Simulated scan of single mutants.
Amino acid sequence: MSRRLEGKTALVTGSTSNIGRAIATAFAAEGAHVIVSGRDGERGSAVVGRIRAAGGRADFVAADLDGSAAVSDRLAEEATRVLGGRIDILVNNAGIFPGSTTTDTDEKTFDRVYAVNVKAPYFLTAAIAPAMVRAGGGAVINLGSWVARLGIPVGTLYSSSKGAVETLTRAWAAEFGPRGVRVNAIAPGVIVPPAGEGEAHPGEIMMKGTPAGRIGTPDAIAHAAVWLASDEAAFVHGTVVDVDGGRVGAAVIAA
């Protein structure tokens, strides 16, 4: 590793498994002191243990991001304290995915998805970005999704919530960018689920006809996150980086 994040501090929400875990691990390998955050203390401690065993710096801060400003504020406050007074990088990764159709979605599910996927990152960013401004700068990375821009017949609620996150990315770039805080997003494609949490991934069929021709891994998203968090992306603002095997950008016609 090139230690591109040496001396930086980072908070990665939803980082006890899959994409969030890969991002937290990659950040630590690049020199950052990382806060691993999520609901499950046992899984969080395991991630922290693996990072430390590899020579990285990490701590776990529990948080059940329910969309309330109070919970987001508490996470921001505790993470800032553990990290020694500042957060240089915020990754808004935590999210939930109900794969239901529009007519199968009840109001309770609707409200919960928007609370976790939109309200929680909204209020967490509101709590942390101004402190980044006061500290001289920082980076916020949001997790969007390929289904925010390519319609599929299921997951309409999730798709719309990720569309909101990508819109917030551009708006926050305009709001905070002139004051030193870069805001960008990553739109993952179909990503392999955590080991042991499923058999053959049903998303394989969704990647047929794409340049990659296969589902991706969490590490692919982590590599993009490291780049966006680093000084190499200093001139990148308000961008959604597609890491999706070409799903939304190109179609391959099979011979």
Rank of each mutant, 00 (worst) to 15 (best):
A94I: 11
I89A: 02
A70E: 15
V82R: 15
D73K: 15
R74G: 04
R74H: 10
R86I: 05
T103Q: 14
A76W: 00
G95V: 02
E77Y: 09
I87H: 09
I87C: 08
L90S: 01
L83Y: 03
I89P: 01
A94L: 11
I96D: 07
T80K: 12
A70H: 11
D88H: 09
A70C: 04
L83C: 00
V82H: 09
A76V: 02
V82Y: 10
R74P: 01
T103K: 15
G99F: 06
E78F: 08
R81K: 10
G99E: 07
T101K: 15
T102S: 13
L83W: 08
A79K: 00
V71W: 10
A76L: 01
V82F: 08
I89M: 00
G95M: 03
P98Y: 14
L90C: 04
T80V: 02
T101H: 11
A94Y: 13
L75M: 12
S100N: 13
V71I: 12
F97D: 05
S72Q: 03
S100F: 10
R81A: 09
I89S: 00
F97L: 06
R81Q: 07
D88L: 05
A79E: 00
N93T: 04
G99A: 06
V82A: 09
A70Q: 13
P98S: 10
T102D: 09
G95A: 14
G85M: 03
N93L: 05
T103A: 13
V71L: 14
G85Y: 06
F97I: 00
P98A: 11
I96Q: 13
A70P: 05
T101E: 12
T80Y: 04
I89E: 01
S72G: 06
G84K: 07
N92S: 06
I96F: 13
G85L: 02
R86T: 11
A76N: 00
R74N: 11
S100D: 14
A70F: 04
I89D: 02
E77L: 13
R86S: 09
L75S: 09
T103M: 14
I87A: 08
P98I: 08
A79G: 01
R86E: 07
T101Q: 12
G99W: 08
E78D: 08
I89Q: 01
G95K: 01
G95S: 14
L75N: 10
I96E: 13
I87M: 08
T101D: 09
I87G: 05
A70D: 11
D73G: 13
N92G: 02
G84M: 04
A76R: 05
T103S: 12
V91A: 07
V71R: 15
F97K: 06
I96T: 14
G99P: 06
L83Q: 01
P98V: 10
G85C: 00
V91H: 07
G99Q: 14
T103R: 15
A79L: 00
N93R: 07
P98N: 15
R74W: 09
A70S: 13
N92K: 05
S100T: 10
I96R: 15
A70V: 09
R74C: 07
G84S: 05
N92E: 05
E78R: 15
N93S: 03
I89L: 01
S100P: 05
L83T: 00
G95Q: 01
F97R: 06
E77Q: 15
N93W: 05
P98R: 15
A76Y: 01
V71M: 11
L75D: 11
R86H: 09
A94S: 13
V82K: 15
D73W: 07
T102K: 11
I96C: 11
S72P: 03
V82Q: 12
S100V: 11
T80P: 00
